[in-house]
Design a protein around this nucleic acid. Structure first.
Lengths: 152, 152
DNA sequence: TATTGTTATACTCTATAACTATA
DNA sequence: TATAGTTATAGAGTATAACAATA
């Protein structure tokens, strides 16, 4: 039984993408149960971990372009999970803070997300996951490296 | 220096997605140089590896919904890289074949794709890549597993 | 001049319902 | 009735140009 995509499976990139798509599809279900999307959950996580950060800083931490981040913050604000507060030192900027409801929803959602993670990584040892994380970091660093072509 | 996304980085899913996004962004550049996208390159690969497969079979091999696959085949056909040929045994179906130009472009593009892969996996041993592929397969299998919730 | 947040826009990928022509 | 390919449509994520207010 030869898979039709056998030649594609020689590529790490192909495997990475197929696996990630399947995993994110599962995660989507976990997020949706709390009225969240992947992007809003991630944003909530950062805002709770680092309260008072500006919109642009949070967007940068998630590698989301600022224009695309506006509606994510809008959605979380309208849901009452975070608040935009005028930065005292810069009238252009907003500092983001999670509401108590936002913090509570985050805790509840995180239980479901962890449960989904456990399902996804079932059968793998802690060592295998550590190795996976390290290898992914190497690939990410390579991918984000500026190369000679970009310098032209 | 604590990263703002430190808590998210505890999740394998988060690392998988961030790494894959960066890697696919690099791959996109490689594909674009040949007038291809990720989906059209993958399709070309399958059609060359298994000539005469029907549209639906190729779509299924790539886990692309058939409605979304129509425009991918359209694009490849208009570019003269593959052809739709009426299946002799089923007047509803099309068998896909690569043109000689499609085969040649595929070979050229694959050189660039391999080069991109080599850049992405630089610093990793063959053993580490084998392990990565295995771990990704485990996660993909877990993600695609039907669980009790789906049976309700 | 440069930066923060914003609007507008466009493109890719994904997902589902419904149609047609066959089977 | 079921299936192959198709059309239409919608949602999510991503990317860039340009603007107003402020630095």
């Amino acid at each position: 039984m030869t898979r039709a995509d056998a030649s594609l499976r020689a590529f790490t990139g192909y495997r990475l993408r197929r696996t990630t798509t399947s995993a994110m599809s599962r995660m989507h279900t976990a997020f949706a149960a709390f009225g969240l999307r992947r992007t809003t959950y991630s944003t909530l996580s950062i805002v709770i971990a680092k309260p008072g950060q500006r919109q642009g800083q949070v967007a940068a931490a998630l590698s989301i372009e600022r224009p695309n981040f506006v509606q994510i913050v809008d959605e979380l604000e309208k849901s009452g999970l975070i608040s935009r507060e005028k930065a005292p030192d810069d009238k252009r900027a907003y500092a983001l803070h999670a509401t108590s409801r936002g913090k509570q929803l985050y805790e509840e959602a995180t239980v479901a997300v962890r449960s989904c993670e456990d399902m996804l990584t079932e059968g793998l040892t802690a060592q295998q996951l550590d190795d996976l994380h390290h290898v992914l970091d190497v690939i990410a660093k390579n991918a984000n490296k500026k190369d000679s072509q970009d310098d032209i």
